[in-house]
Structures are given as C-alpha cells and as structure tokens.
Design a protein around this nucleic acid. Sequence first.
RNA 1: GCCGAUGUGGCGAAAUGGCAGACGCAACGGACUUAAAAUCCGUUGGGCUUAACCGCCCGUGCCGGUUCGAGUCCGGCCAUCGGCACCA
Length: 853
Amino acid sequence: MNERRKPYPFDRLEPKWQAIWDEARTFHALNPGEKDFDPAKPKFYVLDMFPYPSGAGLHVGHPEGYTATDITARYKRLNGFNVLHPMGWDAFGLPAEQYAIKTGQHPAITTRENIAKFKAQLKRIGFSYDWEREINTTDPGYYKWTQWIFLQIYNSWFNPETKKAEPLSTYRGGDPDSVRLAYVAEVAVNWCPELGTVLANEEVIDGKSEVGGFPVVRRPMRQWMLRITAFADRLLDGLDNLDWPEGIKLLQRNWIGRSEGAEIEFPLVGTPQRGVPTSESIRVFTTRHDTIYGANYMVLAPEHPLVDRLTTDDQKAAVAKYREQVAAKSDLERTDLAKEKTGVFIGAYVINPVNQEKIPIWIADYVLVGYGTGAVMGVPGHDDRDLEFARKFNLTVLPVVQAPGKTPEESIGFLEDGVSINSPIIDGLPTPDAKKKILAWLQERGVGRPDVRYKLRDWLFSRQRYWGEPFPIVWRDGKHEALSEKDLPLEPPALDDFKPTGTGEPPLAKAKDWIRYSENATRETNTMPQWAGSCWYYLRFCDPQNQDRFVGEEPESYWMGGEQPGGVDLYIGGVEHAVLHLLYARFWHKVLFDLGHLSKPEPFQRLVNQGMILGEDNRKMSKRWGNVIDPLDVIEIYGADAFRCYEMFMGPLEQMKPWSMKGVEGVSRFLARVWRLMMTENQAGEWELSTALQEAEPTKAQQKITHATIKKVTEDIEGLAFNTAISQMMIFVNAFTNLEVVPVSAMRTFLVLLNPFAPHISSELWQQLKSPGDITSQTWPRYDESFLVEDEIDIVLQVNGKVRDRVKVPLDATNEQLETAARANEKVRNAVGSQTIRKVVVVPKKLVNIVAA
RNA sequence: GCCGAUGUGGCGAAAUGGCAGACGCAACGGACUUAAAAUCCGUUGGGCUUAACCGCCCGUGCCGGUUCGAGUCCGGCCAUCGGCACCA
C-alpha cells in the first residue's frame, strides 16, 4: 500500500552504479610514483571536515558540505585534475566514553559500530571518496603518528631570533624544559567535576562545558601545555594570504587578540619593616599609556603573587576573606557583567612614575591574573570599568583626555582618542602623539617599554579521560622524558571501568601494570584532547598506509604543494570550528613546517563554511522539536541524486536555510523529467530509449541554450553557486521537454554537466544512450561564445529611469540608431510629452534612457 | 557593550549600477482519466482603472544621499541571527 511508484528507477540504478564505482576503483587517487599515475595532470585536494561518528548517524547537515565537495571533486576530475577526495573518522571523543561508563562496553566497539553506520550512509549518497584512504584517529596505526608529532613538539623550542620552531639541540640556554613547545605547568585550569576532566578555554562556554553544559570551576592542576602563544604573530600574519571568509579570519584575529601597548613600572613605597625594598616595583600593561596622569590607584588580580607580601597587617583579614570569596566563584559568576565591582585595599602603595603621587593598591576580581601582568593602573577618567570601580569606592575621577567636541568633564568615561589634558609632559597632544611621547619619556627613565600582549593562552593539552591518545611520556625522579619512536604506538591499557576517578587523577591511573614502565619510571596517565587527531588528518590522507613516516615526502609535496601558501585547495565544514580545530591545526602545521617536514606554511588555502540546515519549522533540528530529518529516509523516497541536488538547490551554500520535503519533491520531479527526456515506458511497464532521441543536428536555439548552460554551470561550480547551476539545468530540461526530435548530442553534453550533481542517473542515461566509455572519464564540455550571441537584441527604453518600452534591434546597431529608435518610439514620446529632452544616455546593447523635464 | 552576517512575493530564492522576483515550492485554472494519482499546458508581487483588452501607479526593513538610473554604492537608524565579552 505504501509502495509509492518511483518516478524513475533510482532504487535500482543507484546501488548498481555505486557497486560499479567500488568495483572499478573509479575514484581511487594515485600517488606519485604509482603505476598509471599521470604527472602531467594538475592536482586538486578537496577536503571535508571529517565527522565524529556519533551513535545518531548522519543528519542532513553533514551531507550539505559533503555534496558541495563531491560536486567539486567530480567536476575537477572531468576537467583533467588528479583529485584527492578522502574521508575518515575523528573517533576519539567523549560520547563513546560516556556510553562506555554507562554500559561497560568498550569505546572501541561502539566506535566501530558507529563508523560502520556512518560509512554505509555516506556510500548510499554516492560520494566519490577514495575509500582506500579511509582513516580512523583511534586506529593505533594512525595515533602512532599523532604521538610521534607530539614528540616533535615536545622536542622543539621556539627560537625568538628566527621566530621558528627548532629542535631543542639548537637551544643554548641552561634549562631546556623551560622552553619546550610541550611543557608541564601547574596552572589554574577549567575543571569540570561532572565530566571529571579539565577543559581547554575553547571548550568552556559561559562557564559551562561545551559538551554537556556542566559547571566548570577554576582549580590549579599540573597539566601539559602546548606553547601556541609563541606562534601568535605567525598565526595572525598567515591569515592574510588565505582564501577564507573574512568573518572567520576576524574570529581568529579576535581570539588571538593582539594588543600593542606599554609595560610600565610603578615603584613600591618602601616599608623597610616589612622587608620591601624601595627598588621593587609593580609592572602593569596598558594600551592607553597616554592616560597615566589619571592613574590614581592600582589593582592587582586577587591571585597576583605579590599580594601576600604587600598586604599590611591591618588589611590581612579583609584580603584573605576577599580572596576566599573570589576563589569560590565559578567562572560564570566571576564574569557576570551585571554584578557590581568588588575589591579590597591591601594597605600598600605605589608611586605613579609621571607625577610621583602615592597611589593605593587594591585587589579586585575584574583584573584577571592570566592577562597582561595581572595588574592594571586604575584610570577612572577613561576606562568604564575603572570608573565604575572608582565610584563604588569613592576614588577621585580625573579627566586627562579631552574627547573631540566635549568639555573635560564630559570627556569622562570616553575611551576614544582625543587631546591630553592635566598631563604636564603631553598636554595638548593628540592621543597617538601623546602615547609616543610618554612612552619615550618612560623608556628614558627605564620604567617603561613597548609591549605586545595576546588574549590567546597556551593550549591546555591534557585530559583526564580514557578514550584518547596516551602521552608517549614517562616520569622518572619527578622529571618527564620521551618514549623513543620505536615504542610507538603506545596503546592505552585494557580497562573494565572507564569512570573518572573524581579526584582529577585520570582513569589510566587505575591500570597499575600499564603505568609501571620500569623499576623507577611510570607512564604519564593523562591523554590528549580530541583535537589532537584532527590537527593533522589532512596530512595522513596523502599517504594513509605509510608505516615509516607520518606522511611520505613525495605524496606530501604533491598533494600539499602548489603555488599557494596553503596545501588543501578547498576545505568545507561548519563554522563551529572557526577558532578551535582551525587554529590548532594551523599551529601544528607551522611547527611541522618549521621542522622541515612539510612543503607549505599553511594547511588550508580556501575555506568555506556551509550554513546550518534548519527544520521545516525554521528551528534548529533537534530531537526536542521532533524536526530532525534522516538522510536515508529521504533517499528511500526520492533517491540519492534528488537528495544531493536538493541539498544544493536549497540556496547559497554558506547560508542558513530551512529544510522542505516539498522542495525535495520538486527537485525529484526535475530528475524524473531528465529521465523521461530520454526514456519512455513501454506497454509492459519497462523503460526503454525514447524514439524522439535522434542523431540530429541541434537547432540554433538548442545550441544557444546548451552553450548557455555549459557556461552557467561551469562558472557556478567554480564559484560554489550550486543552486543557480541547478536552476540553469532545469531551464535546459524545460526547453527540451515535449519535442518531437531530441538531439542526442545535446543530451550527452547535458549529462556530463549533470554528472557531478546527480552521478547515478547521469551514468545510467549515458550508458543507455550507448555513449562511448564511462561518463566519469569524459571531458568537461567547453562553451562556444559564438552560439550565445544573437542577431537581434532587446533594448530597454527608459524615460527618466522608468521603463517605457522594449524594442528589438540588430546586434550591430549604433548608438545613434538606438537613440533615433528611442526618440521615435510612441510610448517614449507619450511619456516625454511636452517636456524638453535634456539628455540621452545610451548603453550599447542594453538600454536608452531619455532625461526630460 | 564590542565585532560580524542577514533583511526581496504566501515560502526557498535570483538579479557585472541598467527590464526586480529567474528557477523551484505552494495556490488556482485547464488537458488527459469513469475517477484519483502521476504527467502535460497555463495563471500567480500589491493596487487602481476597464465589460474585456488596454492603460496607470506602488513595491527589495526604515530615513537620507550619490547617479541619467540604486535591491546593488555611501551615511544614519531599526530588526533578526551568530561570535566575543571585566583582555586593561
């Protein structure tokens, strides 16, 4: 009963062609040096962000980007490129581990099942991946090299002279451990009690874990860190030469958060009885050193190391109490802007170096220990936070910058540039000059210097989880040392109980035998974060089976080479990775590049973010709203080709857009019309070649639309404007529908154009037409401009910018002829009436506009 | 608060500064059919006018500007979405 009649037999032909492609290894990409590899062809590396294989399977958002890359991959192959188009699995991760905790089932089993499901779904959509290059980040053959790369990072340092990562052997200092790019530090980390692990800053949203939404608290712990901050400037500068959306570049720039300013020393007021020498000072970082005359108090972060020593006895109790309160706050509470400023005077003073005034030192939690020097000069006149603080505690507010068009009093609270006032050394100077002069003044006296600070922090790289890469590190006498390369991969121990210990000690600590490395050495028990595997997977795809290297030199320089700074030619994925994966991967890439392992300084040349697909109700798809679409359900009814084409026809790739089952049906109708253009159903209900198909010369009009379609589809694929490419193909099909004679040559051309979008139906019809060879080995058609020009063209006649008529004129009509025709036109004359013609604008081949008044 | 993106028919959308709404959905009418589905053909931004044809006016979030001409460029608002958020 629910056996719906198929508009064309996609249910038969789609699996047929998928089997043929598998069998013939149609989409297998050859590496340089392999048999049949053609070095004359240019390369094209088109990559998807590989998925985490969740238990829920694919949703319609995944195949949106995947279809876009697949169309590009098939198009590039037809254009004579060697195309690398791979797929794999980012399979370490929390959900599998959470499931293991609940059920006791090993995450590897869950992962294997989920991958099988994902793969079956992707294959059913007919993507042209080279499945022989499939990789899985949880495979020991893969994470062996993730661990190996970690060791490269561990054994490197950032040389500030060359501004590059170099092997530790070039380091001349006394303490190599202090400069390693991977180091251990006791840091205040984001500890999530619920998940039993620490998280990176990037994984904490509004004081809650990105995964699960559990509260996150600050807690000092001994952790592995990666020195990404050393690369801050290179990560910024590298963006300039990438073809990425400007918005994403901006997100990364803001995340890195480079600020140029000054570091200034405020000498402490000595109190010999407490042993504080007068030569000591507190350093602050500021970007507005021109406002230093307005600095009439100083604020330290509550955790600032000097607080204990500087607090006077009578303030000790109050300070201790305040610090206790602050420590108890979650990040969410602490950053809640709505709340009032708090703080405590610690009893000590510093001297403002420009006017020798004695100013009080406070602690307040609006100053962060992790940024700048953990201390700020309070300038209530021109910083709204300082102003709020000063008002709360009745401190003086002095204007020192006069904003344009304002009185000094009105200028209070303004952060903009202006002219310095109440500032003897720089009075009357505009802000940029004032900054320069005061900085020079401070520098001469040795109490200030130019400084650059970043919001970016070093990357917290260890996790207290089971389902991740173990660190190839052992501890001996309280010191860490690297495993040798031959000990890789280091596999995690077998465990029955994957639960977090709750103490912050990783689950691996439960495996007593595994931990014990030798008489006096034990293994590191932390694991790497999920990002590790995705930091370099695009490299492994170039050479996935290599046993001896993370990627062979020749495949790497071929697929990741080229003219551009970035290796991957096109990378499509979700915007949610704008600052996480995309920054981490660039960082690893630069380290490996510096160490001489890679050809190009950037991983991804062109990046495109696909927009989110909403439910039919215009809400985000979620179980909660019951509006989730399963791709396989759609394919069951309409077929994979219709599914692919609809995903592209919905609208611009980068735009957010709602799903519409009716829309799928419309696209499905289009494909059915393509089918019936060439096939008819006989008495027995079987499909056979249409008798209208003939080896006939296309008419002039047919040539025109064919070449217009070649042109439009070609240009639109290059510009990733797939929706309008499909529109043009619809126009083509409409033009050829219901004809007595359908020229086969035009159909063959059309099928090649359609192939990247709807590979199954186009392959089948290509074969049905008894065309030579397979459609996948054809050459992309070229359009001939001469078919597009017409003898006569439409000219728009306007009066004062309003359309009054349209006339046909010969293509070669001169401007004078156009103007004459316009003046003679009756509708134009009516519109002009008794007005005088002031001017006539003639745009050749387009329009005539008569200006009359 | 700061930064960014987006605002066009009933809906998804299209339009190198030059005919706004291509293409598709939905809706309506017709053909085919005993009938329905499917398919094919046609109409479809709003308004005024007309018996009808014809004709006219308005219209791309709002206000202004540049231009012979603005959905498109510039300035100022408003709304929605996204990111960052005490970063000194």
